[in-house]
Each structure stands twice: as structure tokens, then as C-alpha cells.
Computed example of a mutant assay.
Amino acid sequence: MRGTVPGLLAAAAAVAASFLVHLLLPAVPVLTAAVVLGLLAANVPGSAAMASGAWKPGLALAARKFLRAGIVLLGLKVSLVDIAGLGWSALGLIVVLVLAAFAGTYAICRLFRLPGDEPVLIASGFSICGVSAIGAMAAVRRTRAEDTVVPIALVTLCGTLAIAALPLAGRLLELSPEVFGAWAGASVHDVGQVVATAQTAGGTALAAAVVVKLARVVLLAPLTAAAGLLARRTDTRKGGSREDRAGTGSRPPLVPLFVLGFLALILVRTSGLLPDPVLEGAAVVQDLLFAAALFALGAGVRVRTLFASGARAAGAALTSWVLISGLGLAVAVLL
């Protein structure tokens, strides 16, 4: 554990810097700042040597463990009572939206010839809940941490783009607060980005956005389980090649333990046992964990590696973002 201290301290400093950037420039989300700082740390002379040397054990711990802990805490934002209030028809529409967004994004990424697990990771992040979905899907598929950086960077940057673009589009289309909120919840990626987008239209829009978004978040567990089952069957057919790639002797988990923790905390939140100050504190801790994890992931990538598929990945992401925005608007109008 002593060897992880330098990297953890670097991550802590980066988290503080990310929050400071957000404080000075509110239009720049904390997670976006954390990714950018990580990329800078990995590619600026001096810090690059530290990122690949003394910081590496601590950053590896942050990238893996902190991201998963943040996903677990995400469960405290989801109340099944609030989601049930949407009604069965609305829930059915949201399920169809997520499946269509996942399938459409995956197909677009394949058309752009993105390598490895990038298509499925980008599809997960764009259709469900951003960074959290990418982390969960990567765990099930035993994807290397460095291979998640491009999907995470794209889902973070496109979500940031939505914060500026959707309010402008909503005003041009003269959408009511309820419809605009549902649109934000149906099409924006991370929960924080949804809040930042929807609050521009007031409390009514924000309330609608959060409920619709959390209905999408719940689907993280079944889609992760489906991906886990597929990964296990693929390993059986290929004689464990994915296990060899991951360097483990075990089969991919059907549902990772941290996803079960996510589900458990959904039940805790639904029970109403935790007071608001505890929930608010957990939300702050989640933001800190995600920021540290994203800095660590960014610090593991060299720019030349990022640009290997970066242009094609950016094109695929923007195309997918337009698709999901259109699907989300259609669902919002129907809701």
C-alpha cells in the first residue's frame, strides 16, 4: 500500500484542481476537467515520467477501485418509488429508448471501424449512464483500463456539449419545462450532466429530468448482467481467451459485486431510511471518487495512442449523440 501513496496524492491534488476549475469556469464540469488534467499529466514532460513511474500504482488503484465505489454510491440516487410514479407505459418507452440507443450507437461505432471493446463501451455510456455504465461494462468484459479512456473521454465531452446545446435547442423549439426536462433525462449521459442541463429551465424541468434519467440508470444492472452472460458464453467457445487477456484465471462475472452493491443501495434509498444530509454527503463522495478515477484513467494514456482511433471515435460519438438526442426528444414528447 505504501507504493500507492504518491499516485493517490497526485489524484487528490487533481481532484482539488478539477473542482477549482469548475468553480472558476462553471461551464466546465468537474469530470471533464479531471479527464483533461489526466491527459496533461500523462503527456507533459516531467509529470509524464511520474505518471508512468512513481504515481502508477496509486493511479491504478484509483482507476479501478474508486470508479467502482462511485458506481455503488450511484445507487443512493435512485428511488424505485419515484421511478414507478412514471407509470408502466412511460417505463416501457424508456426501456425501448435505451435499447434503441444502445443498438444504434453500437452500429454507428462499428461503421466507423472502432477497435476492440470501444463500440460496446461507447454504446453503454451513451445509452445508460455515462462513465458509470462504461466502468461496469468494462468490468464484465475484462477490458483493460487504458482501453476505457477514449469511451470515457467521449461520453464526458459529449455530455458537456449537451449542457450548452440542449437548452438552446429547447428554447428554439419552444418546449415546455416538462418536455424539456424529460428530453434532458432521456438523452444526456451522466446524472450530473442531466442536472446541469435541466436546471436551466427551472425546477419543474429538473424534477422531470431526474426521474427519467434514474429510470435509465436502473437498466445498468440488467444490461450488465446480459453482457456478463454473453462474455461467459464467448469465453466458453473461445477457450478462455478473454481470461488470458485480462491475466486472470477466473471466468468473467455474470454480475460484478459492485453492481450488486449498486442494486443494494437502490433498495436502501427506496426504503427511505437514510436522511437527506447522508444522501447529500454520499453524492459529494461519489463526485470525488469519479473525479479521481477519471484523472487516473486519463493519466494512463499517451496522446499518440489516443489519436490512433480518436478522429473516428469522435465522429462516431457525435453521430451517436445526434441520434440519441433525436430519440430522447421523441420519447419526451410521447411522455
Rank of each mutant, 00 (worst) to 15 (best):
202 G>R: 13
187 S>M: 03
236 T>W: 01
178 E>K: 05
247 G>W: 11
179 V>H: 02
188 V>L: 08
265 L>W: 10
268 V>L: 15
205 A>P: 13
207 A>Y: 00
225 A>I: 12
241 S>P: 00
254 L>P: 07
241 S>W: 00
195 V>H: 00
243 E>W: 02
210 V>G: 03
191 V>G: 00
207 A>Q: 15
183 W>R: 10
258 F>S: 12
260 L>C: 14
209 A>F: 02
225 A>E: 00
192 G>Y: 01
247 G>K: 11
185 G>C: 07
192 G>W: 00
229 L>V: 15
198 A>Q: 09
229 L>I: 15
243 E>T: 08
222 P>Y: 02
214 L>G: 02
180 F>M: 11
273 L>H: 10
207 A>M: 08
201 A>E: 07
203 G>I: 02
213 K>V: 12
251 R>K: 10
179 V>E: 07
185 G>H: 04
261 G>W: 08
184 A>I: 03
192 G>A: 13
208 A>W: 04
210 V>A: 06
235 D>C: 04
195 V>L: 04
193 Q>N: 09
237 R>K: 13
223 L>T: 10
188 V>I: 14
182 A>S: 13
216 R>K: 15
189 H>G: 06
214 L>Y: 01
186 A>M: 04
261 G>F: 03
223 L>W: 02
196 A>F: 05
193 Q>K: 13
238 K>M: 00
256 P>T: 03
258 F>G: 05
227 A>F: 11
219 L>Y: 01
188 V>R: 05
181 G>T: 03
236 T>Q: 12
197 T>F: 02
224 T>R: 09
271 S>F: 08
188 V>E: 06
230 L>V: 13
201 A>R: 13
237 R>H: 02
221 A>K: 09
209 A>R: 00
207 A>R: 14
269 R>N: 14
219 L>H: 05
269 R>C: 02
264 A>G: 12
191 V>K: 01
227 A>I: 07
258 F>A: 07
248 T>L: 14
197 T>R: 07
268 V>S: 08
231 A>S: 14
270 T>N: 09
237 R>F: 02
266 I>C: 15
259 V>L: 11
264 A>P: 10
192 G>C: 01
200 T>K: 13
184 A>Q: 04
266 I>R: 11
182 A>P: 01
226 A>W: 11
228 G>W: 04
240 G>I: 08
263 L>C: 15
242 R>Y: 00
266 I>D: 08
208 A>E: 13
215 A>P: 09
201 A>C: 01
258 F>V: 11
252 P>G: 06
246 A>Q: 05
229 L>C: 10
247 G>Y: 12
201 A>Q: 14
203 G>N: 13
188 V>A: 06
183 W>C: 04
276 D>R: 14
197 T>L: 06
181 G>N: 06
252 P>N: 10
244 D>C: 02
263 L>E: 14
182 A>Y: 01
245 R>G: 12
245 R>E: 15
247 G>A: 07
235 D>A: 07
235 D>L: 03
224 T>G: 11
268 V>W: 13
241 S>E: 15
254 L>V: 15
240 G>R: 05
239 G>P: 10
185 G>L: 08
188 V>Q: 09
269 R>Q: 14
201 A>W: 10
264 A>N: 10
